[in-house]
């Protein structure tokens, strides 16, 4: 599956870019312990977590934040990586940062 998100960590304003209307599915790779999406919200709406533990959003025009709460089985060292389903690495996930947001520009 081709990747739809562009990642540029050095771009403070727009670290993630995509085309408006693209459908993007995100998943988690466990590293220390297991990590799950607890909840997600994008463009003013809750994002459901599917049976595979993945979330899917349709990219909206403009600058919009994807808000995510993670749940960790290891409350001390838990960690993982957020991936697009094409296996592109998007961000590190850490038990030290259970609630985060990702700015997606389109």
């Amino acid at each position: 599956m081709p990747c739809k998100l562009s990642v540029d960590p050095a771009n403070f304003a727009c670290p993630y870019s995509a085309t408006a209307g693209d459908t993007i599915t995100l998943k988690i790779r466990d590293e220390t312990g297991a990590v799950k999406f607890e909840s997600a919200s994008y463009n003013g709406a809750n994002v459901p977590i599917d049976a595979n533990g993945q979330i899917t959003i349709t990219v909206a025009a403009g600058h919009n934040k994807l808000f995510v709460i993670y749940r960790f089985s290891d409350p001390v060292n838990g960690s993982g990586t957020l991936l697009e389903v094409c296996d592109q690495e998007l961000a590190s996930i850490s038990v030290n940062r259970p609630a985060v947001a990702y700015m997606i520009c389109a």
């Binding site: 403070f12 909840s39 919200s41 934040k65 808000f67 709460i69 749940r71 259970p98 609630a99 947001a101």
Partner: peptide, 22 residues
């Protein structure tokens, strides 16, 4: 309990970060 705490945290996260612009 965890779902309720997660829901509260999401509301607070959006309130905190939602209005911050670059």
């Amino acid at each position: 309990g965890l779902s309720a705490a997660g829901s509260d945290l999401m509301t607070s996260l959006i309130a905190f970060l939602g209005t911050i612009t670059v």
